[in-house]
């Protein structure tokens, strides 16, 4: 099954991370690739670069900022191919940001063709 691990944390709190975050992310990604669970993954620019758009009555309105003002922001994601939720959660727990933020895991919907 495909799972999306959404990485949430308060921005600017990377300093609370005990260790070399870049190196640890590199290692996590390599481990996930080696185990055959890695499908995709990216980091996002900070929420200050976010723009939102909505269309009402055919008219697009563009605004500055994220969809919702929350304390914790989406900072990146992994797409993981795991056999079940337990496996997905154990990988998600290894994502470095889990140590000071929160990883939300969602199954990816599969449409019958």
């Amino acid at each position: 099954m495909m799972y999306m691990a959404l990485i949430y944390a308060k921005e600017g709190y990377q300093g609370e991370y005990d260790g070399d975050m870049m190196a640890d992310y590199g290692k996590f990604t390599q481990d996930a690739i080696a185990a055959g669970v890695f499908s995709a993954g990216d980091a996002l620019h900070p929420v200050s670069t976010a723009s939102s758009v909505s269309v009402r009555d055919g008219k697009a309105t563009i605004t500055d900022g994220p969809f919702a003002e929350t304390k914790e922001q989406l900072g990146g994601y992994y797409l993981l191919d795991c056999k079940d939720l337990d496996e997905a959660m154990s990988w998600a727990a290894k994502i470095p940001t889990a140590k000071y933020g929160q990883i939300e895991v969602r199954p990816v919907m599969v449409f019958d063709t």
Binding site: D84, L85, D86
Partner: peptide
């Protein structure tokens, strides 16, 4: 069913 919670005894 949808989140793939396995029917198993944990490791």
């Amino acid at each position: 069913r949808d989140a793939g919670i396995a029917y198993k005894v944990p490791e």
